[in-house]
Nucleic acid binder design. Sequence first.
DNA 1: TGAATTGTATAGTGTCTGCGAACACACGAC
DNA 2: GTCGTGTGTTCGCAGACACTATACAATTCA
Lengths: 127, 127
Amino acid sequence: MYITIDEADRRPVYRQIADEIKGLIARGELEEGTALPPVRQVALDLGLNLNTIAAAYRELQKEGLVRVRHGAGAFVTSRRVSQQGDADLRKALRSSLAHLALAGLPRTEIQTIVNEEIQQLFRVRSQ
Amino acid sequence: MYITIDEADRRPVYRQIADEIKGLIARGELEEGTALPPVRQVALDLGLNLNTIAAAYRELQKEGLVRVRHGAGAFVTSRRVSQQGDADLRKALRSSLAHLALAGLPRTEIQTIVNEEIQQLFRVRSQ
DNA sequence: TGAATTGTATAGTGTCTGCGAACACACGAC
DNA sequence: GTCGTGTGTTCGCAGACACTATACAATTCA
């Protein structure tokens, strides 16, 4: 399970990790029932403390994507987040699109990029 | 200038504010040369300390969108952020799209939403 | 020049992040 | 059943960060 941490990213590390795993789940690269790697292993790979990884797993559990079982491991349980307002979802999308525009990309190029990303997102997915 | 703070949003308040203003600039609702409202006024409107607003303005200045002048006010100077890697821009977009998918929206609906947002983004814009 | 307006600096308080070490649960071997 | 190994959890701490209150400084304009 390949995850990378971005030092420049101002989100806390545990949330970066949670987000990356969310992406893997969304793409179907981590299917329901799959075990996530042990927190110690991920911590070792990334050079972090195991508690940082554990925090990421709890984050995912809180959103209903993962079930963490004390002593047994963490498992993907769903490909659906429990609940999230449509408005919040749009807000994040709107913000990322605004940033593309502020970077100077023309509308056509933004549309191209978005289409590429959507295609990637649904490449593996069965749904 | 209408800005709202989302208590549930885990980004710090000053960055929420900066992001909202960035959106306004990206859409052309705040044109170059326009003065931002004084930090005290925004602080009063939102029930925050003026330093929080000042932090948001500095954030925008750091990205090259705004020029803050001591004693005179803050002004929109550009509709282009100074520099940002293509990879970072895509990362944010990818994440927001993944969240839409995790919310259970089918591909067609995601595409519809994205198109709506892109249209909104370029509604006023001259570029 | 002086009052009003605008951003800045500094210090204090509480929260959040990430870490280290010790703890507790699960599961398979025997 | 029990023990060893593997797995997550708890607790406490240090440092960084977010937000506030208050005092300061630059600008503008009558």
